[in-house]
Design a protein around this nucleic acid. Structure first.
Ligand SMILES: [Zn+2]
Ligand SMILES: [Zn+2]
Ligand SMILES: [Zn+2]
Ligand SMILES: [Zn+2]
Lengths: 168, 168
DNA sequence: CCGGATTTTGAGACGCACTCTCAACTACGC
DNA sequence: GCGTAGTTGAGAGTGCGTCTCAAAATCCGG
């Protein structure tokens, strides 16, 4: 029922809408951050986003990135995801359907999935315990194809190395 | 279906074992903390645990609770659970089987459950995406039986209820 | 039971990821 | 342009947890 909207100008207008509706103002910084966010694919950290936004407009401070991200979340454009062991990541939410995550504990790659059977079972289980579920979180941690140890003949390093250096 | 071992001396000996094995020492504080932890049921925060441990022995500092909890985790006796919106909670792990959690967003109650069908589907989904799962986290958030609004014909609780009632 | 090596402890400094405060600075309608 | 309300950056503050370090406790061999 949701029209699928390719990540495009549309979304930024939807921010303007939300901004207008609340009597807020459109600023250089917000544009830069929104631009960087929409241009990103997948899941971004505040640090990532700050860097990208600064590429477009050096005058962007971390505080503003935090604030704008919160605004985007309130407008239903972004959604924070807190994966184990890394700072909060944000993903584009507009027009996408619910999904859960597979997270590679080695390279940090995040893969999304959705499984209606699991979702149904979750609801059923909850109901059986007297709960009315309003949201859930499900993350599967493990090794992705490329990080899986010692498969002969496989080269894991070439294309796949997503940045994601995590300290701990 | 599991032989229910009442939280008993067994576990504390298993700590001594782990302590001995690593050349560590048994101290008053560790006893107090372990005692408080084992006597607790369900999921405890550091603050909770500190209070309980101090009841038994006033000379226990927060730092030591953190340290001991980490030790317990390394010994496989405790497991940290980070639920959305509350500080890390620890639960007794020894001899129990894996489970996931239902969390009431209003009163904070935590209910455990385990569903083999879901677990199987998780593994299957992961494999289909090329992942080897080593662990997962699944939490269902919502309202428990007692917190569910007694619907006088009108649907009261939308998604947003944020109130944080600490359970005691 | 003692002495000394070694571990542990408490207090407070520190770190990280955020949020808040506030004075200076826009954006924007008139 | 003006005025005003919203916005920004810098830095202080907060929550939660870890680290540092000197003093204290544990343990072990004698
Ligand atoms: Zn990987
Ligand atoms: Zn996602
Ligand atoms: Zn409840
Ligand atoms: Zn549990």
């Amino acid at each position: 029922m949701r029209p699928r909207v390719a990540p495009s100008p549309d979304l930024s207008s939807s921010l303007s809408a939300c901004i207008a509706r609340r009597g807020l103002k459109s600023t250089r910084q917000r544009q830069a951050i929104l631009g960087a966010f929409l241009a990103s694919s997948g899941h971004v950290t505040v640090v990532d986003l700050l860097a990208r936004a600064r590429a477009a407009d050096p005058g962007v401070s971390p505080a503003t990135v935090y604030r704008t991200l919160r605004l985007l979340a309130e407008c239903g454009l972004a959604k924070p995801q807190r994966f184990h062991g890394s700072p909060t990541m944000y993903e584009i939410v507009a027009g996408r359907e619910h999904h859960d995550h597979l997270v590679c504990t080695r390279c940090g790659r995040v893969v999304e999935f959705e499984d209606a059977r699991i979702e149904r079972l979750q609801t059923a289980v909850a109901r059986a315990r007297g709960f009315t579920v309003t949201s859930h979180r499900m993350e599967l941690y493990g090794l992705c194809r490329l990080c899986r140890p010692a498969r002969p003949g496989r080269k894991a390093g070439s294309a796949g190395r997503r940045s994601r250096a995590k300290r701990r």
